[in-house]
């Protein structure tokens, strides 16, 4: 009888510890690195040699989602996934693509132009806040193309959007990841299909 009471007491201590540990865990910031693969676009190549420059702001881009009380909730790192996306899309768009480490790279003299994308804004909408059964991600980009001397050839804004439905066994992190991948694919589709229709790009292509 005494042994039974002792065992029950031990179990209640273990349960209490687990409860405290889970509560403490839920108070911390969860870190999410966007993971996913991107297919190569099926489009006709533009006969151009393009250098691509990813600045540190893009490489290390992260977004912090805050709770309604202002507490840091989820840190979303999407820099690497953006680079993977551009590395899949650009070789399908242009005849030659060379990645450069900086705007002073001598290889710039051998290409037609330098492309440099930046993220201007990242927005997230969670079902618990919107009361909709979808996770949503919006990303606003600034696309810039400069010539060999660094003069601007084209500068335009692209917005992308992605959403994914909530599901019984889908975690918040997985929901955000899937919505972000849809947004990145949306960027790839609008960028690759509309590139030649941007008025500044059209003007530049006509001069070549």
């Amino acid at each position: 009888m005494r042994l039974k009471i002792k065992t029950q007491f031990l179990w209640s201590k273990v349960l209490a510890l687990l409860l405290v540990a889970s509560l403490m865990g839920s108070c911390g910031v969860s870190n999410l690195v966007i993971e996913g693969s991107f297919p190569t676009p099926n489009i006709n190549k533009i006969p151009l040699s393009m250098a691509i420059f990813y600045d540190d702001a893009l490489r290390e881009f992260s977004y912090m989602e805050y709770s309604e009380t202002g507490r840091e909730e989820i840190n979303i790192e999407s820099g690497e996934s953006h680079i993977r996306l551009f590395n899949a899309v650009l070789p399908a768009m242009f005849e030659e693509v060379i990645e450069i480490e900086g705007m002073d790279d001598p290889i710039i003299q051998e290409v037609d132009a330098v492309f440099s994308p930046t993220i201007e804004e990242f927005q997230l909408a969670l079902p618990e806040k919107t009361k909709l059964d979808v996770y949503e991600v919006w990303i606003k980009y600034n696309m810039r193309i400069v010539d060999r001397s660094g003069n601007s050839l084209a500068d335009w804004v692209v917005t992308s959007y992605g959403k994914t439905p909530t599901a019984t066994f889908l975690s918040v992190e997985d929901g955000i990841n899937e919505a972000a991948i849809v947004a990145l694919r949306d960027l790839a589709s609008s960028f690759s299909l509309n590139f030649s229709q941007i008025p500044e790009v059209q003007d530049w292509l006509n001069t070549l």
Partner: peptide, 12 residues
């Protein structure tokens, strides 16, 4: 959808 990318994405 992957084979036809980017022609059958939600916006295209």
């Amino acid at each position: 959808i992957d084979a036809m990318f980017p022609w059958f994405e939600p916006r295209t």
